[in-house]
Computed example of a mutant assay.
Amino acid sequence: MASINVYSVNDQIIKEKDCVTKIGLSCVLEAFTSIFKTWNISNKYCSELVVLGKVCHSALVKRTLENPLLKGLNLVTLIAKSIQTWNNCLALIDSPSPSA
């Protein structure tokens, strides 16, 4: 029953923050590929992810990880990779660009 409540909370956050319409499908795919496989995400999509915001990013990741098709995956590792992807993007966006 707790998972249903968590799912409801994530859905509520996603709906209230209008997370789904704030980010393009290409960015979602690249961000999730970064989390699940490669650790790589382009500067363009890092910018979109940061604009989306940490609350939306976390809620979307948590909702995705609740999918029964992902049962058996190491959720702790995936959440850690999600946080690392967020932190990498934030650092990239916050860092000053090199002088030309």
Rank of each mutant, 00 (worst) to 15 (best):
N88P: 01
S58W: 14
I23F: 09
L60F: 00
G72S: 04
Q84L: 10
M1L: 13
P96G: 04
I35R: 04
V6L: 12
A31K: 10
S58I: 11
A80L: 05
D11M: 14
S3P: 00
T21Y: 04
N74G: 09
S99E: 09
R63Y: 05
P98G: 04
N43G: 13
G72N: 02
L25Q: 15
Y7C: 14
I93E: 15
Y7A: 15
D18T: 10
L60H: 02
A31P: 02
L25Y: 07
L60Q: 03
N74H: 01
P68F: 06
V50A: 04
C56G: 03
K54Q: 04
S42Y: 00
K22N: 11
V51S: 07
K44C: 06
G53F: 03
V20N: 14
I41S: 08
S26W: 02
Y45H: 15
C27H: 01
A31S: 12
L49F: 10
I14R: 05
T21P: 10
W86C: 00
C19D: 03
P98Y: 03
I35K: 02
I14Y: 06
L25E: 15
F36P: 01
A80N: 10
T85Y: 02
Q84T: 13
I4V: 13
E66N: 12
I23C: 06
V9T: 07
I83Y: 07
N88R: 12
T85D: 03
V55Y: 09
L25I: 15
N43W: 09
T85N: 05
S42E: 02
S95T: 07
C19Q: 10
M1S: 13
P98W: 02
C27M: 07
K37F: 12
S99G: 07
C56M: 07
Q84P: 00
L73Q: 09
V20Y: 12
W39F: 12
K22F: 01
